[in-house]
Amino acid sequence: MARCEIVAALLTGRVIALDASVFVYQFRSAIPEINNRNGENINVLQGLFHLTVSLLQNGIKPVYVFDGKPPELKRAVLEKRAMAAGRSKESVLGGPAPQQLDRDLQTLLTHLGVPFIKAPCEAEATCAALVTSGRAWGAATEDMDILPFGGTRMLRHLKADKKLKVEEYNLPKILDKLNMTKEQFVDLCILLGCDYVEKIKGLGPKTALQMMRKHGSIEGILGAINRQKYDVPPEFHYEEARRLFLDPAVADVRTVPLNWANPDEEGLVRFLTHEKHMKEKRVRGRMEKFRAAVAAGKKRKSRPGSVPGRGGKQRKMNEFYPVTKSGTGARPHPGSSCEVSPPAHPEPGHSRSSEHPTSQALGD
C-alpha cells in the first residue's frame, strides 16, 4: 500500500504536527514512574523534554496539538470500554490530573520555544487540518484515525533518534490504490474500528474491504450482511461517526500562530528543577549537548559540499533516498513516499499500543 519507511533525518527542516496524547500514552507505558519529592509522577514531563529537545536538535520543527473536549459519541464508547477493562471512566475521559499534566507540558513547551495548539475537539483532526492546509508537512501519531480525518501524510514511530526509520502513510496514494473515494474510505475505517462506535463482531479487515468494494457504503453492507454471522451492535451510530470524520471541529489552522524561539534554559531550570524537582544536572547537561550539536551543525553547514550529521562528508544518493523494506517492490521517492505491493489482510486485533486494524487492512 502507500506506505514506506524513511530515515528520521530526512525530516530536517520540516514542520511536524504531533498528537500530544499519543506521546503521553507512550511515555506512561514505556517509562517507569519517576516520583519527585512531592509525590508527582514526572515521567511524561521528562520524556517530552528529551523528545522535544532531540527533535529540535535534529532540525525538526514540532508543533504539539492537545485534545479538547471529546465528542459525546466517543465518551460513551470509552466509558463502556473502561468499565469492561475494570477502570474508572475518568482514566480515559480525563479529569483534574490530566488537565494539570497538559498545563505542565504546555509550560515546558513554552520554555523550549515550541508552539502548541489546544484543539476544540480531537487532536488528530486538527493535526490533519495542519497538514492539508500546508502549515505542517506531516503529522506524527500512532492513531490511524488521522487518515479518515483527512490527514494526507501520517508519520508513525517518530523517535528521538534521527537514525531510526519512520513509517509514512500517504492518503492520496491509499485512496488511489484502494480505488475508493474519501467517503468510502471513512466508512471502511469505521467498520475496522474507531473510537466512536463498536465494531461489527466477526467482520475482519479482509472481509470489510471486500464488502466495501462490492457494496460501496455501510448502508449497502448493512442491507446485504448476514446478521446471523455478523453481530451488528445495537447502537451502531455509524452516520454520526461518519460526520465526525468528514466534518470535524478543528482549530482555525489558517490563522493560529506557529512561531519557534530559542529555548529558555533558565526558565527550564526554574520549572523542571525548582518546581518539578528534576535534577538540575540532568536538565543543564541535556541543554549543553543541544547547544553543542546546534553549533556543530552550523559549522558543518558552512563547509562547501557538506551535509549536517555526516561529519562534513558528502553523502551518497542512496543515503538521501534509502531503499526501504516496506513490502516487495518498494521504490524510493524524492517526496519520501513509496508505493509498495497490495496489502495482506491479517486477522484483526486492536489496542492503542498494538497494530490497528486500519493499518492491517493497508498492508501494515
Rank of each mutant, 00 (worst) to 15 (best):
K298C: 13
E280D: 05
E265N: 13
N262A: 15
H277A: 12
V269D: 07
E280Q: 09
H277C: 08
V294G: 09
V256L: 07
A261P: 01
G305P: 06
V253D: 03
K299V: 12
K281F: 09
R310W: 11
A293I: 07
P308I: 06
V256H: 04
K299A: 15
R303H: 07
V253C: 00
V253W: 05
P257Y: 01
S306T: 00
A295H: 08
R291D: 02
K299N: 13
T273E: 10
V253G: 01
R284Q: 04
K298P: 06
E265L: 15
G285S: 13
L272M: 10
M287T: 11
L272D: 03
N262Q: 14
R310P: 01
P304C: 02
G285A: 11
V307H: 03
D264V: 09
K299H: 12
V253T: 10
P263F: 06
G267N: 06
G305Q: 08
A295R: 12
S306K: 00
S302C: 05
V307F: 10
E288L: 10
R282C: 08
V253F: 02
G285L: 13
V283S: 04
G297D: 09
K299P: 07
V294Q: 10
S302G: 10
R310T: 14
D264L: 11
R300F: 03
K298A: 13
K279W: 11
E266T: 15
R282D: 15
S306E: 06
P304V: 00
P257V: 01
K276R: 11
V294N: 12
E275L: 02
G297F: 03
R284C: 03
M278Q: 15
R286S: 11
V307S: 07
A292W: 07
V283L: 06
A296M: 06
R291V: 05
V269C: 04
E280T: 05
S306I: 00
R303W: 11
